[in-house]
Structures are given as C-alpha cells and as structure tokens.
Design a protein around this nucleic acid. Structure first.
Lengths: 167, 167
DNA sequence: ATAATACGTCAGCTTTGTTGACATTCCAAG
DNA sequence: CTTGGAATGTCAACAAAGCTGACGTATTAT
C-alpha cells in the first residue's frame, strides 16, 4: 500500500497522481469561472473571447503593432484581422500608420474601447479579488508560482514581456 | 501617492489592481501550457479538446450516464453527442443500456479508450508535476485554494462531486 | 533593382459550441 | 391502461474562432 513512496515520511506526497489529477480538474473548472463574467458581458454585444483578448492586450500596450499583438495572442493574422476589423468598425479600436515605418499599424483603444475594457476587467478583477481575499496572500504567491511554472517557455516570455511594461 | 491604501503598512497589498492583473494574465498564459500537450497529441488523430474532456470524465466516473456527463461538461447534448458518436465509432467508448432504467446509457471506456486516456493524462500530469515540483508543496496548496475560490458555485459542485469519488 | 517585411483580404475548411424540431423509449402516476 | 414527462438520439442550420493557402500593396532594407 501507499504505493511508490521512495522514502519513509515521504516529503513528495503533493506529487502523487491523485494530487496532480485534482490540480488538473481544479484548473479546468476554475478557468470556466475565470472567463464566465466577461463571456456574459460579451455575448450581450455580439462579441466573443477573441475580442476580449484583443481589447485587453491593446489596453496593456497601447501603440503596439499588429505583429506585436499577433505574437502575444499566438493566432494567425487572418483570425486576428477579423476581430480587429469588427472592433475598428464599431469604433472601439483605432490604428495609426507608423511614423518611422509606414508599413506598421499602431493600435489604440478609443474612449469607447477603454470603457469596454474597464467593464470587462472590472468584472474579471472582482472575481479574482474575491478569490484572492478568500485564499489569503500566501496562497496567492503559491498560485502565481505554480501558474508561471506551468507556462511554455514562449508563453513565459510573452508574460514576462508584459510584466516589464509597468510592473 | 500610493493611492487608496486605507491603512499604513497595508496588509492588503496583494489585492492591488496590479496584482490582480498579473494573476489574470498568468491564468491566461498558463492555461495555454496546460492544454498544449494534449492538444498536440489530439490533433495527430483528428480529435480535439472536446474529445479529451469526454474521455477524461468517462474515465473518472465509468458507468456514468449521458446526462451526468452533460452536467459536468456544461454543453448541449447535441454537441456532446457528436463527440461521443465519433468516440464510439472509433471504438474508444462503449455505452450500455441501463438495467434499472433502460432509457439511460451508461458510458465506459474500452481498452483503446483507456489507452488514449492514459496517454493524454500522462502528458498533462507530467507538466503539472514539473510545475508542482518547481513551486513546492506550499505553493501547491495556495494554487489549489485560489483556483477553488475562483469557481462558480455550480462548477464547485461538479468539482466536489468528482473529488468524492475516490479522494 | 530586388528582396523581404508588414499588413490586409479572399476563399475555403475544421472544431465546437448554439437553437429548434422531432422520434423513440420507457418510467411512473393517475 | 393510458398518458405525461424524462432520457436519449438525431436532423438541420447556424455562429465563433481557429486554420491554410494565395495574392496584392506599401514600404523598407539590401
């Protein structure tokens, strides 16, 4: 019984398949909650998660180029273009031709775009805040540590690049 | 400056918008990593994430009914049916007419289905294990606490129901 | 001059979700 | 025993959001 413990008083009990499975399922169900509030807001206005992501990251690095955003999101330009076109037609995003390099388009949120971003991130932050508060500061540190260790290297790079912008 | 701190030596610094934003972005990028390995395996065999989820939860509660699975996954029966049909045609899932209630179909993985499940969950567990090991046991506790606090109530119920099966 | 880059766009395909409608089978209550 | 409702399956049609491939057009770099 207690199969596979290499040492007595095993300090690695948190690495059992049971523990890992619980982590996997927690991740699955929690991600649902994580996206639930924005999803509700977005479907009311004929947008989806893709629009949310675009709006979020344009807000995060205003003036970024299309290629830049493409790299962060990891989708094809055709897919992103469809989303950006809709957002620009609806006046939530505007693009400026680059000064140094006129091939580039720099992306910005309009006032309306910022308003939507605030609405979405308020909802998502509220949930996050509630969860953080319930779990406590030490749990939050652990939460972030595990998530960061779970990223692919290139995801980690994208995440770190964003972190450097302000914080 | 340091806007909005209600107390000096504020013990709630982990609840700043900056901290929350980092958590949100960490969640976004980490979920990519979380699904990356299974996704790679699945596209090689013309399956997608939906098939993975079905296989996972059938494995978790063998003999569960279609309705049961529907409740866990939170999709329409039409959507699930398409996935289940493919899995059954390919001999990975079998369904048994209920003994007590013959309207119900009880779902099981075949040997091939179990083999696929193992392949997928091995990949996912490997990543989880690496992340857990890197972060350490205390971080793992915090990770789970925050995730659980982030779930909607009904997600939490589904999660807890699965937990009770074995662990 | 020519090649490469950044961007946009057309067309077509896939996965996975959605509604709505309808048939079948079966349990249970009247 | 009939009938209502539950559980299931299936058809059709559609949408969101991803993909590939091809092509055009500025613009910059070599």
């Amino acid at each position: 019984m207690e199969g596979g413990g290499r040492e007595t008083g095993n300090p690695l009990l948190f690495l059992t398949d049971e523990q890992l499975r619980k982590g996997i399922e927690a991740m699955f169900f929690a991600y649902r909650g994580f996206t639930a509030d924005p999803d509700r807001i977005l479907t009311d206005m004929a947008y989806g998660r893709a629009h949310h992501r675009a709006v979020h990251f344009i807000h995060r690095s205003p003036g970024g180029t299309v290629n830049n955003l493409l790299a962060i999101l990891g989708v094809t330009k055709q897919s992103l273009n469809r989303v950006l076109r809709a957002l620009m037609e609806d006046g939530l995003v505007r693009s400026e031709v680059g000064k140094r390099d006129k091939r580039e388009r720099h992306l910005y949120l309009t006032e309306d775009g910022e308003a939507l971003e605030r609405k979405l991130s308020d909802a998502q932050r509220d949930r996050m805040r509630t969860a953080y508060r319930a779990a406590g500061p030490e749990a939050v540190t652990g939460f972030r540590q595990v998530l960061e260790a779970m990223m692919d290297q290139d995801m980690r790079n994208r995440y770190d690049a964003l972190k450097d912008l302000k914080g």
